[in-house]
């Protein structure tokens, strides 16, 4: 297989790091380290590095928690994509994964809702959610998207690719 055209596509879109496949916690850790090393060479401030890293962690852990919650961590629904690209003078962090059709619609609604909020309101909602009781078997605290919205410099975008069957492919991008 000649991967050159794939590489050209990556380069043209400013992609720095891309992972495609089923990912585990240790892959999230390793990719995170690679990302930081990469950003360390970019001459940007520590705050910017942390914002990109934190956004990557929230997206990756969100995907993994969703797969566990919906039992999608095996077979063809397990493969997910995480990318980190240069975007304008900053970075774009994206995740793409299979989601149940109805979930995609509610996710897009929630993202549109968060995009409309001012920083003070995002902080207020973050603190409110942090104070909310977490169900005993919960994997996350329901704070991930709020955290990403707070670190974003532009509204998040999402894309839904309709597929035959019960799933759609959901892509979410945050801009730092």
């Amino acid at each position: 297989m000649d991967l050159y055209s794939l590489r050209e596509q990556f380069d043209a879109s400013g992609m720095m790091i891309c992972f495609n496949g089923p990912f585990s916690h240790s892959i999230i850790e390793e990719l995170g380290t690679a990302l930081r090393n990469h950003l360390a060479d970019e001459n940007i401030g520590k705050a910017a590095v942390l914002d990109v890293f934190a956004t990557y962690i929230e997206l990756a852990q969100n995907v993994r928690n969703y797969q566990t919650l919906r039992s999608l961590g095996q077979g063809e629904t397990a493969a997910s994509i995480i990318t980190i690209s240069r975007w304008n003078s900053g970075y774009a962090v994206s995740s793409g994964n299979m989601v149940i059709k109805e979930d995609a619609a509610s996710l897009c609604e929630r993202i549109a809702e968060l995009n409309a909020l001012a920083p003070d309101e995002l902080k207020r909602r973050y603190k409110e959610q942090m104070r909310r009781e977490v169900p005993p078997d919960a994997l996350g605290a329901g704070l991930g998207l709020l955290e990403i919205a707070r670190r974003s410099s532009s509204p998040m975008t999402c894309a839904v690719r309709e597929l035959d069957g019960p799933f759609t492919f959901f892509s979410l991008t945050a801009y730092i």
Binding site: L50, A54, E58, M130, L139, A141, L143, E147
Partner: peptide, 12 residues
């Protein structure tokens, strides 16, 4: 130096 969102919940 860094906490993910669910760790902030535990810290609270």
């Amino acid at each position: 130096t860094y906490m993910n969102s669910s760790s902030t919940k535990c810290m609270l």
